[in-house]
Simulated assay, not measured.
Amino acid sequence: MTAAARGGACADPRIAGLRTAVDRLRRDLGGHPAPLADREIADRELDALDRMTRSGDFVAAELRQSLLLIVASIGSVSALAFGVAQLRDALEMFGVSRYDRDEPYLFRQRPPVSPPVAWPPGHR
Protein backbone atom coordinates (compact mmCIF):
# COMPACT_ATOMS: atom_id res chain seq x y z
CA MET A 1 0.00 0.00 0.00
CA THR A 2 1.37 3.41 -0.96
CA ALA A 3 1.63 6.37 1.36
CA ALA A 4 -1.01 8.17 -0.70
CA ALA A 5 -3.42 5.27 -0.32
CA ARG A 6 -2.88 5.23 3.46
CA GLY A 7 -3.57 8.95 3.59
CA GLY A 8 -0.04 9.69 4.79
CA ALA A 9 2.68 11.83 3.33
CA CYS A 10 2.71 11.91 -0.43
CA ALA A 11 5.82 11.71 -2.59
CA ASP A 12 4.19 13.49 -5.54
CA PRO A 13 4.10 17.25 -4.88
CA ARG A 14 1.23 17.67 -7.34
CA ILE A 15 -1.00 15.39 -5.29
CA ALA A 16 0.04 17.05 -2.05
CA GLY A 17 -0.67 20.48 -3.56
CA LEU A 18 -4.08 19.40 -4.82
CA ARG A 19 -4.97 17.81 -1.49
CA THR A 20 -3.95 21.01 0.33
CA ALA A 21 -5.97 23.18 -2.07
CA VAL A 22 -9.07 20.97 -1.74
CA ASP A 23 -8.82 20.99 2.06
CA ARG A 24 -8.34 24.77 2.13
CA LEU A 25 -11.31 25.46 -0.12
CA ARG A 26 -13.48 22.99 1.79
CA ARG A 27 -12.61 24.77 5.08
CA ASP A 28 -13.25 28.19 3.56
CA LEU A 29 -16.55 27.06 2.09
CA GLY A 30 -17.63 25.46 5.37
CA GLY A 31 -16.85 28.65 7.27
CA HIS A 32 -18.65 30.93 4.82
CA PRO A 33 -21.72 32.20 6.70
CA ALA A 34 -23.93 33.22 3.79
CA PRO A 35 -26.13 30.66 2.08
CA LEU A 36 -24.94 29.80 -1.42
CA ALA A 37 -27.36 28.44 -3.98
CA ASP A 38 -24.80 26.08 -5.53
CA ARG A 39 -22.88 25.06 -2.42
CA GLU A 40 -23.88 21.40 -2.95
CA ILE A 41 -22.28 21.40 -6.40
CA ALA A 42 -19.01 22.76 -5.03
CA ASP A 43 -19.07 20.23 -2.17
CA ARG A 44 -19.73 17.37 -4.58
CA GLU A 45 -16.86 18.37 -6.87
CA LEU A 46 -14.48 18.88 -3.95
CA ASP A 47 -15.38 15.37 -2.81
CA ALA A 48 -14.65 14.07 -6.32
CA LEU A 49 -11.25 15.78 -6.34
CA ASP A 50 -10.50 14.39 -2.89
CA ARG A 51 -11.33 10.87 -4.10
CA MET A 52 -8.99 11.36 -7.06
CA THR A 53 -6.12 12.38 -4.79
CA ARG A 54 -6.64 9.29 -2.66
CA SER A 55 -6.99 6.84 -5.55
CA GLY A 56 -4.28 8.38 -7.74
CA ASP A 57 -6.51 8.22 -10.85
CA PHE A 58 -6.31 11.58 -12.61
CA VAL A 59 -8.09 12.24 -15.88
CA ALA A 60 -7.50 15.74 -17.23
CA ALA A 61 -11.04 16.07 -18.56
CA GLU A 62 -12.52 15.18 -15.16
CA LEU A 63 -10.18 17.56 -13.36
CA ARG A 64 -11.10 20.33 -15.79
CA GLN A 65 -14.83 19.60 -15.41
CA SER A 66 -14.59 19.69 -11.61
CA LEU A 67 -12.72 23.00 -11.75
CA LEU A 68 -15.30 24.45 -14.12
CA LEU A 69 -18.20 23.44 -11.89
CA ILE A 70 -16.50 24.76 -8.75
CA VAL A 71 -15.67 28.08 -10.37
CA ALA A 72 -19.19 28.37 -11.79
CA SER A 73 -20.79 27.62 -8.43
CA ILE A 74 -18.65 29.65 -6.00
CA GLY A 75 -16.14 31.56 -8.12
CA SER A 76 -17.93 34.88 -7.70
CA VAL A 77 -17.71 34.83 -3.89
CA SER A 78 -14.80 37.11 -3.06
CA ALA A 79 -14.26 35.49 0.36
CA LEU A 80 -13.49 32.20 -1.42
CA ALA A 81 -11.33 33.69 -4.20
CA PHE A 82 -7.98 32.73 -2.68
CA GLY A 83 -9.03 29.11 -2.19
CA VAL A 84 -10.41 28.90 -5.75
CA ALA A 85 -7.17 30.38 -7.14
CA GLN A 86 -5.10 27.92 -5.10
CA LEU A 87 -7.19 25.05 -6.49
CA ARG A 88 -6.76 26.33 -10.04
CA ASP A 89 -2.99 26.56 -9.54
CA ALA A 90 -2.87 23.03 -8.12
CA LEU A 91 -4.80 21.64 -11.09
CA GLU A 92 -2.47 23.39 -13.51
CA MET A 93 0.34 21.19 -12.16
CA PHE A 94 -1.61 18.25 -13.65
CA GLY A 95 -1.71 19.89 -17.07
CA VAL A 96 -5.19 21.38 -16.66
CA SER A 97 -4.65 24.80 -18.13
CA ARG A 98 -7.06 27.69 -17.83
CA TYR A 99 -5.86 28.70 -21.29
CA ASP A 100 -6.53 25.40 -23.10
CA ARG A 101 -7.31 26.41 -26.68
CA ASP A 102 -9.22 23.19 -27.44
CA GLU A 103 -11.98 23.79 -24.90
CA PRO A 104 -15.01 25.64 -26.32
CA TYR A 105 -16.12 27.20 -23.02
CA LEU A 106 -12.95 29.20 -22.44
CA PHE A 107 -12.60 32.71 -23.73
CA ARG A 108 -10.41 33.10 -26.74
CA GLN A 109 -8.33 36.11 -27.45
CA ARG A 110 -9.56 38.13 -30.39
CA PRO A 111 -7.22 38.36 -33.34
CA PRO A 112 -5.34 41.64 -33.64
CA VAL A 113 -7.24 44.37 -35.40
CA SER A 114 -5.59 45.91 -38.41
CA PRO A 115 -5.04 49.66 -38.26
CA PRO A 116 -7.82 51.76 -39.78
CA VAL A 117 -7.52 52.63 -43.42
CA ALA A 118 -6.89 56.31 -44.06
CA TRP A 119 -9.69 58.14 -45.78
CA PRO A 120 -8.91 59.40 -49.25
CA PRO A 121 -7.82 63.03 -49.35
CA GLY A 122 -10.69 65.48 -49.61
CA HIS A 123 -13.28 63.05 -48.21
CA ARG A 124 -15.72 64.42 -45.62
Rank of each mutant, 00 (worst) to 15 (best):
P13R: 14
P13M: 13
P13Y: 09
P13C: 08
R14S: 04
I15N: 12
I15E: 15
A16N: 13
A16H: 11
A16M: 13
A16E: 15
G17V: 04
L18Y: 03
L18K: 09
R19T: 01
R19E: 12
T20A: 15
T20M: 13
T20F: 11
T20G: 11
A21V: 09
A21G: 07
V22P: 05
V22L: 08
V22D: 04
V22R: 03
V22S: 02
D23A: 14
D23V: 03
D23E: 13
D23K: 14
R24G: 00
R24D: 03
R24W: 05
L25N: 02
L25I: 04
L25F: 05
L25R: 04
R26M: 09
R26E: 09
R26C: 04
R26D: 14
R26V: 03
R27F: 05
R27D: 14
R27M: 08
D28M: 08
D28F: 00
L29V: 01
L29Q: 01
L29S: 02
G30Y: 06
G30A: 10
G30K: 15
G30F: 04
G31P: 09
G31D: 09
G31K: 10
G31M: 06
G31S: 09
H32C: 08
H32K: 12
H32T: 06
H32D: 06
H32S: 07
P33Q: 10
A34E: 14
A34C: 11
P35S: 14
P35H: 12
L36Y: 00
L36C: 06
A37R: 13
A37I: 03
D38L: 15
D38C: 11
R39D: 00
E40V: 07
I41N: 12
I41W: 07
A42H: 02
A42I: 02
D43M: 04
D43W: 00
D43C: 01
D43Y: 01
R44A: 01
R44S: 07
R44G: 02
R44W: 02
E45A: 03
E45Q: 15
L46C: 03
D47E: 15
A48V: 14
A48W: 07
L49P: 11
L49I: 05
D50T: 04
D50P: 08
R51L: 13
R51N: 13
R54V: 03
S55A: 06
S55F: 01
S55N: 14
G56N: 06
G56E: 02
G56Q: 05
D57P: 08
D57I: 11
D57C: 09
D57T: 13
F58G: 05
F58A: 01
V59A: 14
V59Y: 12
V59D: 15
V59E: 15
A60C: 11
A60F: 07
A60M: 13
A61F: 01
A61S: 13
A61N: 10
A61Y: 05
E62N: 14
E62C: 09
E62I: 03
L63H: 05
L63F: 00
L63N: 05
L63Y: 01
Q65R: 10
Q65S: 05
S66E: 10
S66Y: 06
L67I: 02
L67R: 10
L67Y: 05
L67Q: 10
L68C: 08
L68V: 02
L68G: 08
L69R: 15
L69S: 13
L69I: 04
L69G: 08
I70A: 01
V71F: 08
V71H: 10
V71I: 14
A72N: 15
A72C: 10
S73Y: 01
